[in-house]
Amino acid sequence: MTYADLTFEQWNKRSDDAARRIAAEIAGRLDLTVVGLRSTVYAGRSHRVALFDRAGMRFALVPGGRPTLGYDAGRFQPAAGQADSFADSADEYGLPSLAEYVDAMTSPARAVELPARLVAVEAFDPGEVPLAPGDPLAGLAVMGLRTTTPDEWEWACGAGAATLFRWGDRSPDDGYPCDHRTGPHREANLWGLAIGQDPYRHEVTTERTIVCGGDGGSATCGGSGFFLGWLTLATAYRDEQFGQWLASDAGYADGALTRPVIELG
């Protein structure tokens, strides 16, 4: 088995000594430094996190497998506050039913095959890549990196959680994400990644029209309603219009982040 074949279950079943050997071998092959291994619990699920360093950039091991990504809004049962918030937004903006709207704003449920990989713990401004100022993302390839695909991003964010958000189905009904400086959205996720924490910090993917992890703050800035503001942090959130506009000549590059990946194959 190559390390690209390493699944969530296989990795967590390894003994601590075996896990340390795997981490050391990955680091040796890819010229990385092992920062450490630690056990973590997020939203009731446990995992062994492996962290690596490359020239000051921190990466975490994200195991592979055949996960189900996307979201089926038919299984969403909103809390009273979520339903009330959406009803107010629907009245103001002429939106369809809550289930129809959530379905339209999330990627469809689907099973995919994903190999294990290393994913950057923090996303960063691609303009900070010094190697290709005219095409910052091309600079990642020169560094032996690339940005995430949409499927990789969802898996990296949700870590297989079947709920709307990576922490569950509930969201606060007394403010937008930026109003809550603490909470599950501010914590590192199951893989140890700081991801999907702030709708203003949306991330580009390999698909030019698909951004993840936020909507550029549009729902929050526009006062669209608390539930709509939190929905932008849903693992499978997709704002097609925003993505298409962002990729057009009228769009902007400032503020969009990228999350590098190192392949293990």
Results as ranks from 00 to 15, higher is better:
1 M>A: 12
3 Y>P: 10
4 A>T: 14
10 Q>N: 14
17 D>Y: 15
19 A>H: 13
20 R>Y: 08
21 R>W: 14
22 I>Q: 07
25 E>D: 15
27 A>E: 05
27 A>W: 00
27 A>N: 03
27 A>Y: 03
30 L>C: 02
32 L>M: 06
36 G>Q: 07
36 G>F: 10
36 G>N: 12
37 L>V: 02
37 L>Y: 06
38 R>E: 07
41 V>I: 01
41 V>Q: 00
48 R>Q: 04
48 R>S: 05
49 V>C: 09
50 A>F: 09
52 F>N: 06
54 R>K: 15
56 G>P: 15
57 M>Y: 15
60 A>S: 15
61 L>V: 07
63 P>F: 11
64 G>V: 04
65 G>L: 10
70 G>S: 07
71 Y>F: 07
75 R>G: 05
78 P>C: 12
80 A>Q: 14
87 A>R: 11
91 D>C: 05
91 D>F: 11
96 P>K: 12
98 L>F: 15
100 E>Y: 15
102 V>H: 05
109 A>T: 05
114 L>T: 01
114 L>S: 02
116 A>W: 08
121 V>S: 02
123 A>S: 15
125 D>L: 14
131 L>F: 00
131 L>P: 01
133 P>W: 03
133 P>Y: 02
133 P>V: 05
138 A>C: 12
138 A>E: 06
141 A>I: 10
147 T>R: 15
152 E>N: 05
152 E>T: 08
154 E>C: 08
162 A>G: 07
165 F>T: 14
165 F>N: 02
172 P>D: 04
174 D>T: 11
175 G>S: 01
177 P>F: 01
179 D>I: 03
180 H>K: 09
181 R>D: 09
183 G>H: 04
187 E>T: 07
195 I>F: 08
200 Y>T: 01
205 T>V: 06
207 E>P: 11
208 R>P: 11
208 R>M: 07
212 C>M: 13
213 G>Y: 10
215 D>N: 13
216 G>T: 01
218 S>I: 07
218 S>N: 05
219 A>W: 09
219 A>R: 14
227 F>K: 07
229 G>I: 05
233 L>M: 07
234 A>G: 12
246 L>T: 10
249 D>Q: 14
254 D>S: 13
256 A>I: 14
256 A>V: 11
258 T>N: 04
261 V>D: 00
261 V>G: 00
